[in-house]
Simulated scan of single mutants.
Amino acid sequence: MARDVQITFDCADPAGLAAFWAEALGYRLQDPPAGFESWEQALEAMGVPPGSRNDASAVVDPAGSGPRLFFQRVPEPKRAKNRVHLDVRAAPGLDGEARMAALEAAAELLVSHGATRLRRHEPAPPLSAGHIVMADPEGNEFCLD
């Protein structure tokens, strides 16, 4: 039986990182619980103290097909390279210069939203179509593929 997957990020600023990944993936902030017009209203009603209201956030695929991304505040900073990372499919169906141009455009957009460009890997057929390694605003590596 296949299972749904949620991807969880440990981070310092859940709301900020959720906003970045929503932009990067075309996702949206998860709606507040039924009966509430905003998360602020829901958290107030739940008695969550103001200092704890950025302890978690989540974004979802508006089409409902992609995994939910959950962001939770942790006290320690990121210290080492990720052992698992996301590949953001920014150039599906493209190859060669058209592919790399699409990846460059995606990299430029994400840098404007706080990402850092780390390195570019040129196409090396037949096994590699080329990709760009990036880091999100908290240093988590991902690839534009």
Rank of each mutant, 00 (worst) to 15 (best):
E40C: 06
A19C: 00
R79I: 08
A102L: 13
Q72L: 08
G64L: 00
V84T: 09
A22C: 09
M100W: 01
E76W: 01
P33N: 03
E37P: 10
R89K: 12
A18Y: 08
H85K: 02
G51M: 10
P33D: 09
R28T: 14
L43K: 12
P67D: 12
D31N: 07
A24R: 00
A91N: 04
W21E: 03
W21M: 01
D61L: 12
G64S: 05
A102M: 12
Q30L: 13
V84S: 11
A45S: 15
V74E: 05
A102G: 12
R83V: 07
R68A: 12
G93S: 11
L94S: 05
L94Q: 12
G51D: 14
G47V: 13
Q41F: 05
G35K: 09
A19Q: 11
P32N: 00
A101L: 02
E104F: 01
L29G: 10
P62Y: 13
V59Y: 04
A91D: 02
D55N: 11
A56E: 10
A58R: 12
M46W: 15
V88N: 06
V74A: 00
V60K: 01
G47P: 14
P49D: 12
V60A: 03
D13E: 15
A91V: 03
V88K: 06
A63L: 12
V88W: 00
D95R: 14
L29M: 12
A45E: 15
G96V: 08
Q72G: 05
L103H: 06
G96M: 05
F70S: 08
R99S: 04
P67M: 08
R68S: 14
A42E: 12
S52C: 06
N54T: 10
A19V: 06
A98D: 12
L43A: 04
A106K: 12
W21T: 04
A80P: 00
Q41C: 04
A45Q: 15
E104Y: 02
F70I: 14
L69E: 09
R28L: 06
S52K: 15
G26L: 10
S57I: 06
R89Q: 14
A45W: 14
Q41L: 08
P67A: 14
V48P: 07
A105M: 03
R83M: 05
L69G: 04
F20L: 03
P75S: 06
W21S: 06
A45R: 15
A19N: 08
G47W: 14
W39H: 15
M46V: 10
S65Y: 12
A80H: 05
E104H: 10
F20N: 03
V59N: 08
V59G: 02
A63Q: 14
F71Q: 03
A98E: 13
A24W: 00
P75N: 07
L94R: 13
V48D: 07
A42W: 14
E44W: 08
M46F: 15
A22M: 07
G64C: 02
F20V: 05
M46T: 11
R89V: 13
P92Y: 11
K81D: 06
G26W: 09
E76A: 06
L103I: 08
A58H: 11
D13L: 13
N82Y: 00
A58E: 08
